[in-house]
Design a protein around this nucleic acid. Structure first.
Lengths: 331, 331
DNA sequence: TTGTAAGCGTTATCAT
DNA sequence: ATGATAACGCTTACAA
């Protein structure tokens, strides 16, 4: 049922290598036989076996992408960027979701290795660099997206400048006249959490506003953390007038809790998030946030993968993209 | 650099077939040599070549998934369901985004065919059944997710019962006492658009409310369509008191336009959507909607793919899941 | 310009 | 219990 070049060869009365040449537009072939073979291939519904081809060529034109989950608007758009760039260059994407389970992530990486992907892009992983051992050692370039903490040799990264983005957010609040500015942090252990906190502190310091540890709340990056933070924050004697959240989901949880508590945003509390997920512009009040160039992040990661696959990584340096402040109604 | 069974064979002083047996837990092998080989494989960092294996085995343990875009909360969650079920059964997912471009979709399908995926799941495609010709004919089962209009033999589908869901929504509005109920339709040509419209009409008919063509507006499934519909709707002399939208994005656009126009929801206009995307519960007023079991849709599609890959499709019938009305603040 | 043959990394069928 | 050997579908020297 499955047609191979041998079947075509038989039908055309030539050898299978002639068919191979014809189909790969080799110059060493008679124009007439070439078109005859193309014709035949078409009619017979031939489709080259990519696996067999990879076996001899040594590469698969496939990249592996491991995300925590696609059911999250951030990764979804990043994946979109990767897929788009991959398609544009004739590459396919094998997708694996780790669900933040190290075991699943390890399994995913092993599968990708077996499938002989030409590169792997890992987004927001806690253990990303760990894979460099298995993959990098096996010659597969690993690109870390938005996580650079555990940088190892031969691991590359493309990320947004979290510290700069956090500064943007905090400076915006400062410019609005706020002096008591709270921060709801991100998941512990993620480099982005530390960087955004650092950016927040840097902006405060620069403005001569003393840092107050009582104003930074632990978080997870999910709405519940924002709701909790809202509660703690409102219980404070000397209430902050503004809050910079680790990300939009946190801010949205906070917004919701504020509404329920009858706290007016932005009049009584200004809120700014980070990421600019689609939801941000739809909640009410619409959320002021730092937009990450998500699609471009994905694109750049794929571009880097491409560069790494051809040259042996010479001249490929880490890419850092800048976020952009988007002012809406919550500040 | 890449280790093959031959390398291990050489190191162990045995033949490569012995290594193969050892690694695949064949019963016909000495326990001692077996463990020695496993040990060696471990040390040398061996990873089996999935491509080579597929060549002889005849299957790849890979399914292709083609979506319009992942940057859309609906497909994202469906993909999540597919990936989860795939992982649970040792399958990988190759993801392709068509961007609603038939050319890209065709290219994607051709790539998947070349990569010899064991099955293909196509979500919400306008041309889904078209692929049945290329793939189905080549023996690759095709599963259509949420699009059944162009059903061909050997094409299978899992979908939500759009008509039933639409009835649920409309009956809810009816029960609330509404009699002039508008509908903003979905993209023309999608079976779901027609089905949801039909469900809406059926519910009206059953309640003895005459159908009024002036109350159904064309749409696209995107927020802009909802905003436009809001304008047309408010211009009407005899204004409807409720509206059932093709999907949540449409409803959210409508909600936004209503807010800007100072129209109170649900007091002056009740709004219900379809899908239950995460956004639905975060907008204000929170959106009443018909929840699609997105994750389960994906899971079931993958389960069907699995069933189709082992048996020759005997006893596999189309799967229809029911939506669930979720009442929130917009009605 | 074409055919022959070797090889890519596996599995599977023979013998031994 | 193990080793040759063929086969999967393809590309690519090397010959002719």
């Amino acid at each position: 049922m499955k047609i191979s070049i041998k079947d075509i060869a038989r039908a055309a009365g030539v050898s299978h290598s002639t068919v191979s040449r014809a189909l790969s537009d080799s110059p060493l072939i008679n124009a007439a036989t070439k078109s005859r073979i193309h014709q035949l291939a078409q009619e017979m519904g031939y489709s080259p076996d990519a696996g067999a081809r990879s076996l001899v060529r040594g590469h698969t034109c496939t990249v592996g992408v491991v995300v925590t989950t696609v059911a999250d608007p951030f990764s979804a758009e990043v994946v979109e960027g990767i897929e788009g760039a991959a398609y544009a260059h004739g590459y396919s994407v094998i997708l694996a979701a780790s669900q933040d389970d190290p075991e699943r992530e390890t399994a995913a990486v092993e599968t990708l290795r077996s499938k002989r992907v030409d590169a792997v892009i890992v987004t927001s992983s806690r253990v990303g660099a760990l894979h460099q051992e298995r993959l990098g050692a096996a010659g597969v370039p690993v690109i870390l997206l938005n996580s650079h903490s555990q940088q190892l040799p031969h691991t590359f990264s493309v990320r947004v400048d979290d510290q700069h983005g956090a500064r943007l957010a905090t400076e915006h609040l400062l410019a609005l006249g706020h002096r008591r500015i709270a921060h709801v942090a991100g998941p512990a252990g993620h480099s982005s959490s530390a960087d955004r906190l650092a950016g927040y502190r840097a902006a405060l310091a620069e403005a001569g506003v003393p840092f107050d540890g009582a104003l930074v709340f632990a978080g997870t990056g999910r709405p519940a953390a924002g709701e909790q933070a809202a509660a703690s924050l409102m219980a404070l004697a000397d209430r902050p007038t503004a809050v910079f959240c680790y990300n939009d989901m946190t801010a949205i949880g906070l917004l919701r809790a504020a509404r329920q508590a009858g706290l007016a945003v932005p009049r009584e509390l200004a809120v700014v998030g980070f990421d600019d997920i689609p939801l941000a512009s739809y909640v009410s009040p619409a959320l002021t946030t730092v937009a990450q160039p998500k699609f471009e992040l994905g694109q750049q990661a794929m571009a880097m993968a491409l560069a790494l696959m051809v040259g042996r990584g010479e001249g490929v340096g880490d890419v850092v993209l800048q976020g952009r402040l988007v002012v809406r109604e919550s500040t």
